[in-house]
Each structure stands twice: as C-alpha cells, then as structure tokens.
Design a protein around this nucleic acid. Structure first.
Lengths: 341, 341
DNA sequence: ATTTGCATTGCAACCGATTGCATTAATTTT
DNA sequence: AAAATTAATGCAATCGGTTGCAATGCAAAT
C-alpha cells in the first residue's frame, strides 16, 4: 500500500502550480514545451497515475460506454462484444458490460446502475420480455445517447443497428420454396422482439407470394434453445401431415432439431429441408451442413460503437440516420438442397 | 438536457444539511428513521441519482472490477464472462471488460487503463505472448488484488483459478492408450502458457507411464485455430507412419481436423481416435461425437469473482489459498471408442 | 437543579483534477 | 522609453458526496 502520487506532489517538487501540471499533462498549448517535458518526465519518474474519477467528476464525462445484452454467452453476442471492445478501445472508450439474462427486471436494474455510473452512452439489446421504455428515458432526458442493436425497441426517440429481418426471413423461406418445399414450418422466438417478428413477417410474405398458406399449426414460438429443438422434432414426428421444410430462427435450435430428426430416421433435406439463422460454428459441423443466414455480429458491434462515438464527438448526430441496416446473407449448404426431379 | 439533482438540492428543500442527506441515503444508523424516510421520499420525488464519481473519489473505491481476457469471442471465454457478470452483479460490482487479442502489448495498455480507472480488483487471463509481469506489479504495490484465471502467470505474488491441466492431459492421453492407441499425437498451443504446457506434461507422463515414447514428430505447436486443424490433418496425411490417436487442446481445432481427416477418407475412431478439449457445443455435433475435457467456464468465472470479492470484503485473503483448482472431467464420446478386438 | 448520556444533526475539510480569469514576465510595436 | 502584445503560469472555485468531530437538544440520573 503506497500513497497516491497526485499532480499536487509533482507541483510541489517542481515548484509549480497544480494547474500548470494539469495542463502540461494534457498537452495544453499555453504551456511552455520545456516545462511540459520537465513535468512529464517527473511524472513518469514519480510513477504518477491520473485519477480518472477526479477527472470524470470535473469533466462531467467518463469515457465509458454501457452495454446491456440479454446474454453474454452466445456465439453471436460474444462476436458483437468483441467488435465493440475493439472499436471502443481504438476510440479511447471503456466498456461497462452487463447482461439482463433475458429478464426485463434485471435490465431495468442494470440500466439504473449504468445511469448512476454516468456512462457517456448506452448500447442495448433488449431482453425477451421488455415492454417498457422508461428505463431508457432517463438517459434521453439527460442527453445521453442510447443506441439499440439487434433487438431494438420501436420508439421514436431511439435509433438502432440492425439487419433487415423481414428480408432475411423472406429470403430464407423463398429459398425453401424454390427447392420445392410446399409445407414450411417456422420456429421462432418471442414475437415482442423485432428480430423474431420481422423474420416471421418475411416468412409469411414469402408464403403469400407463392400462394402457400401460413397455418398456425406450422408456426412454433419457443425459446430457441437446444431443448426447444428436440421438442420441435418430437412435435413434427407426432404430426399427421408433416412439413417438408423448416425455417428456424437460430442455428443452435436448428442443429438440435436436425439431430433429433435424424435420430428418428428422417432424411435431411429430402424428407425435411432445414434453414437456420446466425451462421453459428455448429452450422458447418452438422451433417448435412446447415443452410443459414449469416449475421454480421462483430461488424454490428463495431458499427454501433462507431455510431455512438461519432455522435458523442459531435461528428454525426444519431437521430438523423434512424436505423442503420447491415446486410445479412443466406448461406446455402446441403441441409436445404432437396433432390428436385 | 436537465440539470442534475444533488444532495445539496434535497438538503436545501428540506432545510437539512447535505451531510444528513448523504447519511440518510446511505442508511447511516445515526439518522432518525423518520428523517430517513422523509429524505428518501423526497429524493425519489425529485428524481435524484447518486453521482458515482463523486462518491468514488471520496471513498477511494469504485465497486468496479477489471477483466482482461485474450478474446471475447470464444465459447469458453464468453461462458467465463457470463459467470463473472452474474456473480459480480449479485455482489454489487461492475465489470470493466477488455480483450488483449492475444497481444502482450495490448494487454499492457489495457492494464494501464484499468489501473487509472481505479478498479478495485483485476481479473486476468494472459495473452499468448505475455512474458513480463510488470504491468500487474503496479496493482500489487497499491494493494489492489490481482487474480488470474485459466491462463495464469507463474509468479509468487499472484494466485489464480485454474483446472489441473496436467491431470486433464494425463487423463485424456491415458484414455486413448486404454482404447488401444500406440502412437498418439498431441496438438497444442504456445507452451509459455500453463494451460498448454500442463496438458503437454500430462500427455508425456501418460506416455511414459505406459512405456510409449514421446517423439517430437508427434507434437505440434499451433494456434489451435480452425485452419490449424486442417493443417494438422494435412500433415498427418503426409506422414509415413501415421498416429492412431490425437489429443488436441481445443475442440474447435479438433473438430476442424476431424472434418479434414474424414474428407481424406480416414475413419474416426478406428483409423485415428480423437480427443479434444473444452466441451464446446461443436463437440456434440460432429460425427462421431468428440470425446473431450469438460472445462467449467461459467463456474470458473463465478469462483474468480467470489474469491476476489471476498478478499475485498476482508472475509478471506487471496494469498492464503494460492491456487484454486476446479475439477475438470473427461467426457467420453464416440470419437475415441475404437473397436478393440 | 445540575450533571451525564444519548440521539440527531451540522460544520467544514476533503478526495484530485480542471478551468475561467488574473497576473507576471518577456517581447514587440509605436 | 512607454505602451501594447504575447506567452506562460498561478489563483481559486468547482465537480458532488463523504466523514471526523463538534454542537445541539432532550431525557435520565444524581
């Protein structure tokens, strides 16, 4: 335990004022360059470390961005975070990260913590069951930018970085139709969330456009977990008229479903073609390899940080460009390539 | 943009002193309970939000823990982080997370940032090429606890949360031997890191104990990436005397190697048995399913946070229990089950 | 009636860096 | 040589809570 070295200590030793030391360390133009060198050398010699908190208090900013995600341990989310960290680091920002564990209550509590920590900006991907916007309102009121990503809230004051989920769902479904599927099932998550409702919309649009009817029996709302995948397979097995194609909103669930279907003796893709979502590593390991929608996680993280940092620097206001839409892409693999005769 | 509400505002309105307001909000025993209620109600009514920085500055602590990891986007690391966040959240700590991207230089820079941010404690898993300990020394000097996890540094002043890599390597290799392998290859990462050198040691011990010789030809040091897996398969294919078993220190690499071997026509496990490490989701998707070492990521994160928080609370000093060793477990699947006659 | 003790509350210094304004010294202009 | 600039530095207030010590008031003890 050693005492902290402050600018006062440096000032005293050099016979200067703390103000001069502070300015020298911040490379203020009014300070003589020789003095700057002198002070900087002394600072290093004495092992001076700036106290971020005193600085934050006075400057009224923290160089810290808050990030709230549903879960840290998903392949997609960790890619987003990796991108965010990389970009934030470049811009000199720190990341305060927390997870809501898909609970709106915890999300609200985390938002409050972030607020009290005086983050300069907030990035959020909302939980399954988030209904309200109030916990973000306090940020807006104070002029702290809030930017959503992936799972966004439909609220006029907030912008977000997303992919075109409707288009992605449309493309995925159209692909199945093209490959000869007539009875396509869709497995997705909580429809409160844009990502799932959007993909459903795309799925429905594609069916309509091809004169196929979307029946309730062919739509399953699940939590998209591994278990859900097995459950879906079970349900399919029990159906009287089975689907000949499935579009599942998440690779983990899709792969688990495929495994279960294979065990039950179904041939993929000939009996049932499958399309997933995310381009998770498992999609390239399952056999047949899973056709899926590539989802640019790392890029999304980078763009989100870049956008909010530019806003903070005053380079580009967020509110102008409301939604930033990143491209997604259907990656066609064998799980959807039926032998069409 | 609204003005901040401070304890001074509350004090003025209620005709009390800021000191009393501060104490009331912190539930100080000397304050009359009626006064507390009054102040708390007023605080809520006025929308008061505590300024963490002022508080931190005065209290000389931040309730923030720094975390430095090699990469955020690996399945294992995101599990660790998920566990950390969950546990930290419970204990009222925030997490400042950064990644070194396997670069010692960036790790040093990140450590400096953490130091200036006055984190109350530091958790670190070091980069591939970290050689020095200096960047952690400054924390120790100031009495800030540093706890390593998974990839630790061999330094008397620092403790860590780990698994028994030697034992895990020994168990994995012994299993292959038991299944009839006579010529076992080992693919691992940079031997500077305990995780890899430990597993290698266990591998060598197992060979020795069974009178098998460890030849240099059968040891490959790689970065354990997907590409490395393909490369390993290529090398094996080119060998005159091929191995009949491989122990690979990472599932991602192992799976990629298996895929490549299968494409080249090798039968797994009969031609070559494979054991991986991590119990990554892909290990349960590849066919045959990959025998691997389960590695308790989430638990490791939780334990690390719990340990450092207990230390900070003065409940249990870290230095006493030097290394916390979590159990790992060999999960046997089909990739290593040769048909023994 | 005086003293003692306890419960509350307030005063004022602090944490450490930042910054508007003033001051001093050095240099240039008139 | 005096005045006006310019350059460099210092003064002191500020950010908003926290906390050791003092002060006040009131009830209980002597």
């Amino acid at each position: 335990m050693e005492k902290e070295i402050t600018i006062y200590d440096i000032a005293k030793i050099l016979g200067l004022s703390p103000a001069t030391v502070s300015r020298a360390l911040n490379d203020h133009p009014a300070i003589n360059s020789k003095t700057k060198i002198l002070i900087n050398e002394k600072a290093i010699e004495m092992g001076y470390q700036s106290n971020t908190f005193a600085s934050n208090l006075r400057r009224r900013r923290t160089n810290t961005l808050g990030v709230i995600v549903p879960r840290l341990n998903s392949n997609f989310m960790s890619a987003v975070l990796a991108g965010m960290e990389e970009e934030a680091n470049i811009s000199g920002y720190n990341l305060l990260i927390s997870q809501s564990l898909e609970s709106a209550k915890k999300e609200i509590s985390n938002a409050k913590t972030m607020f009290n920590s005086r983050v300069d900006g907030l990035l959020a991907s909302v939980a399954y069951d988030t209904d309200t916007f109030d916990h973000f309102e306090s940020f807006i009121k104070k002029g702290i930018p809030v930017l959503f990503f992936d799972r966004i809230i439909d609220h006029p004051k907030c912008s977000g970085v997303v992919i075109d989920n409707v288009l992605a769902g449309f493309t995925a479904t159209s692909h199945l139709i093209e490959k000869g599927c007539k009875r396509i099932m869709h497995v997705t998550g909580n429809l409160k969330r844009n990502v799932y409702s959007g993909r459903l919309k795309g799925y429905q649009d594609a069916l309509l456009q091809n004169n196929l009817t979307a029946s309730n029996e062919l739509l399953m709302i699940t939590d998209l977990s591994q278990e859900a995948g097995k459950y879906v397979a079970q349900k399919i097995d029990e159906m009287e008229i089975r689907p000949d194609g499935i579009f599942i909103s998440n690779d983990i669930c899709a792969v688990s479903c495929m495994k279960a279907l294979k065990e039950k003796g179904y041939n993929i893709p000939d009996d049932i073609a499958v399309v997933g979502f995310n381009n998770d590593p498992v999609s390239q390991v399952i056999e047949p390899n899973l056709t899926t929608v590539y989802y640019p996680g790392q890029e999304m993280g980078k763009v989100a940080i870049r956008t909010i940092v530019n806003h903070l620097k005053g380079i580009q206001s967020i509110d102008v460009s409301d939604k930033i839409v990143l491209p997604s892409e259907l990656i066609i693999r064998k799980s959807s390539l039926k032998e069409i005769d």
